[in-house]
Amino acid sequence: MTTTLEIHDLSIGYSKRAPLFKQINARLNGQKVTGLLGPNGIGKSTLLKTLAGLMPPLKGSIQPAVTGKTDNLCAFVPSQPPRAAHFSVRDTVSTGRYRYTNWLGIEDQEGKHMVSEAMELTGISHLADRNSAGLSDGEFQRVAIARALIQDTPLILLDEPTAFLDIANKRAMGLLLRKLAAEENKGILFSTHDLSLAMEHCDLFWIMTPDGVLHQGTPAEMEQNGTLKRLL
């Protein structure tokens, strides 16, 4: 069963008098990789944070539809997550299970197994005992994704996950996001400025254009109807 997010007449921003983006109607699909595209400052991060529940919507509703849970829907991965120094990678990932660990934050057997699995899946098992402050940007981005994965949410939202990565890591990130959608049934929404990466790995596009419209469709559709050209 997949969880889908129905977004109806949503306004986002910091002030009711001057919303950043208005009347967003969209559907976020589970098990699909959706790329969020648009020029700087149009409100991609704000939209992601609003969907993740980190900012209140100014207007409108965000409802889980079709099936599934009503809370703990989205995990959020910022573009440069703050790191805790002298904190091992394993312990960092484990904090993602906040809702499920005991009062001291200690994992049971099942939890430990889930942490190991998430590290395996994101390819950071060999870093488990390293100090997370000593990792490269690419490595820590994977730690943050493992931490999001383990929150057991149907959807994962990522703000420019590839912004600070080199070419090889960008490609690896795209493949990882696709793997999460296909194998772990996660719905993925990530913002990016890398069009070729998005074309290669996304099932769907959300494109925010300066005229205040959020266009949805497959990459092929977007190319055909000329919406992609408007980004250039």
Partner: peptide
């Protein structure tokens, strides 16, 4: 303070992350 341990560990990774965990 002992009962704060779990929350403190998450706070060390930033307020935004803490809130995204539902804290």
């Amino acid at each position: 303070s002992v009962f704060n341990i779990k929350d403190l560990n998450v706070l060390l990774m930033g307020e935004q992350y803490a809130r995204s965990l539902g804290i």
